[in-house]
Nucleic acid binder design. Structure first.
Lengths: 234, 234
DNA sequence: CCTATAAGTTTTGCATGCAGAATACAAAAC
DNA sequence: GTTTTGTATTCTGCATGCAAAACTTATAGG
């Protein structure tokens, strides 16, 4: 049987020994999403493994998982490269995200606990603060956080996970494209309306607002992509 | 420059050398989906690698990718097991598939080439033939083929891929649960209506029919799961 | 009889080694 | 000068080896 422990020990979190391939995935994903590894970059196994301080084995596992996420492209016998930002594919991804957001809007209004809505509201005002300061980077962070939190608030783990993965592919564009002041202001207004609908738990209205918001975002993302048609390797 | 080649050589398909981890994934996915590796089964690396005739390295890559698909569960330092059929998770997966099917229905009616619709029609009648023969296994195969082909017909590769992956998780239940004759007949009627709507390219009707079809399927799948609450390892 | 401890075994996680494919480079032929 | 052919090098794909963690069995203590 288990001996009684002092509560301080009983609640002690175990020391998490993170698998190396997971750490590598997170590091690489960040580098790719933030554009530090530009589209088309060759990912040399030996070099990258050395830089990350791991061996090729877990790194290769990371490559394959990132390929499944669509962030990396595997060329058989010829290595891995950072996936190109293909406007067609990005457009398709956004369309799928739209379908998911419709469900998110419905479910979130029906099932989200008040605490989750309160958290989203808090994030919303943090985002508005960043907007007021014209701090684009922080704005993006809170913007992302809101959308992801909303996906979680729907109470469907599969939905949240799927949404999250698709989102990573789209986020890459954001780090390369600036936002026009008008579009930025409009986006904030859209978020105001979204928050209001969520607070009122008006599912069909939230659904419509999210759909509209995403349509605007799609236009802005694809316009940004059109400006730099194909980014070559670095 | 490239020398002109006899057309027989110019059209020669290259010899495809398939990576071992992909082959392993396909083999394992089939075994899991068809229930030959029951939920909870431990996947011993050395044993499985030996049986598949490969080394542990590509097998471990396969494990991780199957975990990303939700078919395998990785227990840190304790190996991999076949993922349990969690009714809650299956229900969530079906809900997401519903959102995707709504988009599939719309896009397929708008964009599917006639050839794709013709192919789906052909598959439909193959399925009806199997139904007439009460051949459940063949029926399932064509049923799956129709839904996947429909997803492809929408002309959105990301959509098709996402749908396909979620579908694998649900398919597992089918191989373990029989279908009542009434439900079977009803499903075939629903498919008749779906095909008609697709042929007429009536997007909103197709959307509604797919939604209804999935709702029925959800009920039947969850009912089947409720009968055998938690399947232990084999 | 049950629990706790310790040695022995198995298994995973990762690093490394090796064969074959791909690439880069150089020399020869045109 | 351009293209082709041969050679050296680099890289990937996979197998194997090794240390640490987990499981198993045996043994001592209550």
């Amino acid at each position: 049987m288990e001996t009684d422990l002092p509560s301080s020990l009983a609640t002690l979190a175990p020391i998490a020994r993170r698998p190396l391939h997971e750490a590598a995935i997170d590091r690489l994903r960040d580098l790719i999403v933030q554009g530090e590894l530009p589209p088309g970059s060759r990912l040399n196994e030996r070099v990258l493994a050395g830089r990350l301080g791991i061996s090729r084995t877990p790194l290769r596992e990371a490559f394959k998982l990132l390929a499944a996420e669509g962030l990396v492209e595997l060329l058989p016998n010829r290595g891995a490269i950072v996936a190109q930002l293909d406007p067609k594919r990005i457009g398709q991804t956004l369309a799928v995200m739209g379908a998911l957001e419709a469900l998110i809007g419905e479910l979130a209004c029906k099932q989200a606990p008040e605490t989750a809505i309160a958290e989203i509201r808090a994030l919303h005002f943090e985002m508005r603060a960043a907007h007021a300061r014209r701090d684009l980077a922080v704005y993006f962070r809170y913007n992302q956080a809101i959308h992801l939190k909303l996906a979680e608030a729907a109470g469907n783990a599969v939905l949240a996970l799927t949404y999250r993965q698709l989102n990573a592919n789209v986020r890459r564009v954001r780090y390369m494209a600036n936002l026009s002041p008008e579009r930025w202001d409009a986006a904030v207004r859209e978020h105001d309306a979204i928050l209001a609908a969520l607070g009122a738990r008006d599912g069909s209205r939230l659904k419509a607002l999210l759909s509209d918001h995403l349509a605007q975002k799609t236009a802005s993302v694809l316009a940004a992509l059109a400006e730099r048609p194909a980014m070559a390797a670095a």
